[in-house]
Design a protein around this nucleic acid. Structure first.
Lengths: 377, 377
DNA sequence: TCCCGAGATGAATCTCATA
DNA sequence: GTATGAGATTCATCTCGGG
């Protein structure tokens, strides 16, 4: 994997001749990191084990079994053991980071609080926490919690006094309809053709991250020719995106199969042209607005009487954003369907609020909220 | 602040006569919590300080380049103090929480990782982390980081084995376009008329939370008449929303001015009508009806042929309310599972009776009996 | 070739009353 | 305490096969 066409890449090589650029180091992450020269890496992206503590099987409503992450590498005896592991790799990473370098770590509520506290303890300085909102998370099948629809990334510098880290503010802003880049990002999970498959046709790695996520990270906090280290390389998303975007990568992975899959994957990546690397546009989606939000904002207060356009049917707005029709309670759509004796109904256009002598569809209140939420890609 | 019109509220008073319901306790949060009876509170919402007296300590005193180890040690000392404070109030809260009670904590990246790690260490069991995305966050003026556009809430039960916590799944789903509620919420920050002002016209409290956010929390994880405790009461948003939604509150606040402002604020709150607050009974809470009862009433006579929705499988109703599938006899659920070769099955929704040309799920007959029971009760 | 429906699947700490 | 069994529970997206 050569980047000779890139002047910055050549310079990096001369500065740090012993860096194993664009290669995967097969072995334990801490041992391998200790072989690298100090202060040699511009950016670290780490996707450590999450320490999920899963109890039994989980089945979907159709009784099919959820393919859980039950791999040995995600098993820890205790929080203490997990913390010790976390501190060890965070320290090893800190040594190889340049003074201007920054670290990204991704995790879920199972581990991210421990990681965050540990990195603060070790002197890292948090610049942001960034939320990856998933457009298509796995649902909560038992209806006993909120759908776990996001993961958290922590972006940190080596210390409070670390200056000169890379943040491509202007480019990010230009790519975000001239709005400042925010700490909440929206991406689909990795699936379809992008998802690496084994010979058996099954996913090659249980937790492969989407390339779009890594692209946003690298475009935010690194420059072309920079060295990006991933101590938990896995299926090699960091390497694939780094190659595509003209960055160097160093991966550490202890599983031989993952490393082999990543090598083949990265070999197939075609780097973008230098001109196109400057920018990555952000796509915007129409926001879905819940009626509960309309109620919570006080745009349609609880107790309000809704009617259809002709005033034939009516229902009462409840505090939780449902409607009450006599003793029956349900969504604006359900109740709309019930009062008409139909299978389905678009509650947004069916239900109206009296405003003076006229009736206003509740759909109108959505626009108010959408106007606010337009900021939030 | 009386809730005499509410039967549940009266009962709560009788059950726990020493609970200072709907009042603000002026004093140190830990000392005040220790005066409350154990296992007496249904829900805790906590918005703890993250700068406290520690702010100077949390930051590096000078910008000089110090040895990294010394640097880490300095920070560890001050983080340690914050952690001690955090553990103390988390422990005090844990004592007053009912076994079925849950805790919400809100914070930003400055403190939330420490809070999350501490509460895991103390045995709390995280149910979700929930992200409050702000429609209108304060911009990042220097353009050196992402706009900090969210805060994080942690929702936790007392322990991994704590069952029976309140989660109003069906109501939340009905209020969200009939989609299950997600872990990312979108609300504006508290501003305008909702923002409490002092006599000088300036904001009365620096971190007043929006009522819509608290409303979502209370509607998600509490029932009418529940006791909601806020150990860092501040401007009293928790109390105002609790009163509006027919929940009791207990606030602890050590600042006399904040407590006074909160008292006045809450006195002006008009509770919602009982109808708009009353909860629809969740399906899992509905009265159980045995299939034998359905058969005994003749709603589905013995000998009836049941099929699945597609007519692929069939079974015969027996007089005792079991099903026969060839020589195999069992409950509607067991036989439903067996004919499909599955572990489990909800026989109520799986099995259908022919009615004219259409198929009707046997679940429909349960409603008939429940309706009778409602009349009797 | 295109359309449609059925099936599969994703970092998941996923029940509860009764005996 | 534990064991048992009733019965409640999913959204967006991609793949594949048949018409």
């Amino acid at each position: 994997m050569a980047f000779q066409r890139n002047g910055a890449a050549l310079a990096a090589r001369i500065d740090a001749p012993s860096l194993p650029l664009d290669t995967i180091l097969l072995g334990d992450c801490i041992a391998e990191l200790e072989k690298l020269p100090a202060a040699s890496v511009d950016l670290v992206f780490a996707d450590p084990p999450y320490n999920l503590q899963l109890q039994g099987d989980l089945r979907r409503p159709d009784q099919s079994l959820v393919d859980a992450v039950d791999d040995a590498w995600d098993q820890f005896e205790s929080f203490q053991a997990y913390d010790a592991f976390t501190r060890a790799w965070l320290l090893a990473v800190r040594r190889v980071l340049k003074p201007t370098g920054t670290l990204w770590v991704i995790g879920s509520y199972h581990n991210i609080f421990r990681v965050g506290a540990s990195l603060q303890d070790l002197g890292y300085w948090i610049l942001n926490d960034v939320v990856w909102r998933k457009t298509n998370p796995m649902p909560n099948f038992r209806g006993r919690r909120f759908t776990n629809a996001h993961e958290t990334m922590i972006w940190a510098s080596r210390g409070a006094d670390a200056k000169g880290y890379t943040f491509n503010y202007e480019a990010l802003k230009a790519g975000n309809e001239d709005l400042q880049p925010r700490s909440d990002w929206l991406f689909p999970i990795c699936s379809g053709a992008e998802r690496l498959k084994g010979l058996d046709g099954r996913k090659a790695h249980p937790t492969q991250k989407p390339e779009a996520l890594l692209a946003r990270v690298l475009l935010s906090a690194s420059k072309p020719g920079d060295v990006v280290l991933d101590p938990f390389f896995g299926s090699g998303t960091t390497g694939a995106v780094a190659k595509r975007l003209g960055r160097h990568f160093i991966g550490v992975e202890r599983d031989r199969d993952y490393a082999a899959a990543a090598t083949a994957r990265i070999a197939a990546v075609v780097p973008e042209s230098e001109e196109s690397i400057a920018q990555a546009p952000a796509k915007r989606e129409a926001a879905r607005v819940a009626f509960a939000t309309v109620v919570e904002r006080g745009l349609v207060p609880p107790g309000t009487r809704l009617t259809d356009e002709r005033g034939r049917h009516e229902a009462i707005v409840r505090a939780d954003g449902t409607l009450g029709f006599g003793a029956v309670i349900g969504s604006i759509h359900r109740i709309g369907a019930i009062v008409q004796g139909r299978e389905a109904c678009n509650g947004w256009t069916f239900w109206h609020v009296a405003e003076g002598r006229t009736l206003k569809p509740i759909d109108a209140f959505r626009d108010v909220i959408r106007a606010e939420g337009a900021l939030a890609g």
